[in-house]
Every structure is written in structure tokens, then in C-alpha cells.
């Protein structure tokens, strides 16, 4: 199940650090509202694994992951490891593209009429994959590549499946799930 909340956007009159702190606290509040009200889980069950990935200490069969960006918070909850990432579509950095994308992906972005959206489609897929696999962005992002063909997404690494959503033409949301054997 994917939960999405629109929240107030970053107000440039305030500090970005202050906004990011507020966003993070809001995201955790919303996460706990869902875990408590929908899954009857107690707050003290939250533990953090390597790279800061939150999980539940003894709620076997319930996995979750949360993301937030300017104006949006999203949560995925399910019965298998998952990673989720959302980004607001905006001008992107060439330096980041060189770090994140391989040559073919970079060409696809640069040739796209909607290159901002395309960059963040790749970026969120790679971050969602890293979160599902449990190492965040601490892996060579260029080496895990994606082929995006309309709605179909193929990854160079096996064992995971992906879904992606365009929200109000303003945000890209990617979700990565560990694949079940029968899939």
C-alpha cells in the first residue's frame, strides 16, 4: 500500500535546514499514525538498520519505507522489503547526472523533451532501489541501470521490481519491491 500526503512547500523566507527538519518530523508522525492505526504497531518497535533505514524490531511480515521532498511525503507498507523515493520535478544538475546516470541514461535524459522529469525518473528509481536493498545511496549508482519504456521499467539488477508514478505533473514517485520467487 502506498500513502501520499501533500504538505506545505518550502518557504524561502525560512532556512532550508529548518524546513527539512520539520518535513522529517512530519513524515515520522504520519508514518506512526499509519503503523498505529492501520497495523496496530507500537512506537517503541522502531529500530534503525545500517545507513539509517528504519524498520520494526519484531513485526515480522510488515515492511515499510518513507520518503519526503519539497511539499510531499510518501510511505510504502507491505509484506516484503521495499524502498520509496519522491522528488519534485525541477531543474537538475549536470554534476549530479554524471554521478548518477550511465552514458545511455544520460543520453536519454538529454534527448527527452521532458528532461527534468526524465532525470528524476532515473534518480528516484536508483534511490528507491538503494533503499529497498538497504544501502541507501552508498552504492555505485551508475552501475545499476534502468531502461524506461513508457510504463515498463527494467533494471540491470535482478531480484527487484519497480513502479513509478507522476503526481500532478509536479512530482515523480518511484517504488522498488523485493521480488517474490513466483514473480
Amino acid at each position: 500500500m502506498i500513502y501520499i500526503w501533500k504538505v506545505p512547500a518550502y518557504d524561502k523566507r525560512k532556512s532550508k535546514a529548518e524546513y527539512e527538519r520539520w518535513l522529517s518530523e512530519k513524515a515520522h508522525d504520519l508514518l506512526w499514525q499509519v503503523l498505529r492505526n492501520v497495523y496496530q504497531i507500537k512506537r517503541e518497535k522502531l529500530v534503525y538498520k545500517e545507513y539509517g533505514k528504519p524498520c520494526l524490531s519484531d513485526a515480522k511480515g510488515i515492511e515499510f519505507n518513507i520518503t519526503h521532498c519539497d511539499g510531499l511525503i510518501a510511505l510504502v507498507v507491505g509484506d516484503r522489503p521495499a524502498g520509496i523515493d519522491a522528488e519534485k520535478i525541477r531543474p537538475w544538475s549536470m554534476a549530479a547526472m554524471r554521478k548518477v546516470c550511465d552514458r545511455k541514461e544520460a543520453e536519454t535524459i538529454l534527448e527527452s523533451e521532458r528532461n527534468e522529469e526524465m532525470f528524476f525518473r532515473y534518480f528516484t528509481l536508483k534511490e528507491a532501489y538503494g533503499k529497498a536493498a538497504g544501502f541507501g545511496l552508498s552504492y555505485p549508482l551508475k552501475e545499476v541501470t534502468f531502461q524506461i519504456d513508457f510504463e515498463k521499467i527494467e533494471c540491470s539488477r535482478s531480484g527487484y521490481c519497480f513502479s513509478q508514478y507522476l503526481i500532478e505533473n509536479e512530482y515523480v514517485l518511484s517504488v522498488c519491491y523485493e521480488q517474490r520467487q513466483e514473480e
Binding site: E20, R98, V100, F123, L137
Partner: peptide, 13 residues
């Protein structure tokens, strides 16, 4: 400084 994961990747690049 309010960095998020994308900001960090931009800086590293």
C-alpha cells in the same frame, strides 16, 4: 545546512 540526498549527490558530483 538542510541537504537532502539529491543535494548531496549534486555536491559530490
Amino acid at each position: 545546512l538542510g541537504f537532502n540526498s539529491y543535494d548531496l549527490m549534486c555536491l559530490v558530483g
